[in-house]
Amino acid sequence: METCNSIAERLKDLPAMPGVVIRLQSLTKRDDVGSREVAQILEKDTAIVARVLKLVNSPFYGISQGVSSIEEAVAILGFNALHQLALSTAVFHTLAPGDSVLDINDFWRHSFGVGTITKHLCRGQSKDTQNEAMMGGLLHDVGRLVFASADAEKFNAFYYERAAVTDIEDEAEFFGVDHQTVGALLAEKWNFPKSITHMIGKHHCPEQAPEAYSLLVGAVSMADLLCHTMAVGFSASSYATDFSCAAWQQLNLEISDLEVILTDALSEIDDAEHIFSSP
């Protein structure tokens, strides 16, 4: 069995957050960010630009005219939405596992599915909260990518046989740390917003989230359960996360609201299908 420290040690060996994203993060502290400024930073990384533009042009964002430049994308979507897109894209790009039992397209689909459902569960909240919901949902299982990229052989040995029955206690015993904890460590190392770090770090135990973040953490936990229920994508394990009554109540929704929420979310996920084919 591996100790928590040795996994934390390995975090040091993981790729650093791409430079463009670090520079973007520093802009989030200002209110007067111009679209030209964002474009100048992002344009240094053509792989990220290509992915971001692909996402921006997907029906998910409902922009009818084709968006061909980052500058245009910032003008239309705003800096925050674009920053979140760039961050999520960079994470998946940087941590893409090599020869692994994990199909990255299925993983993308699960992540995008949870992001979209989390956003819809937060439909009564502010636009900013909905954006955080999307981003935290997209990144909630990033710890699994950390496992896969740190030691693909070990990852494969664990998940190949045990995908249906693995819970976070099993993971902690096998890897020395579970995927939500290692994901939160990475999120801290990469300076993600606090809300996102908690969504990653507590999505299987929303009751343990600090009160200020409990709504978002509860929403992502519920969205994970719903996404697995609807069989959208795959994230290496299909063990059911527990149902949290407290998290559900905090969302202030009726169970019957789920029909519209799931229908809307699934059609958005379908619309974004082409994104998953080449992450």
């Binding site: 199909d103 299925d106 689909r109 190949y160 069989a231």
Partner: peptide
């Protein structure tokens, strides 16, 4: 490397 496949129910019964 053999990938694990996503569960993809095709019919209402499978779902």
């Amino acid at each position: 490397m053999q990938k694990r496949q996503a569960i993809a129910p095709k019919t209402a019964e499978e779902f």
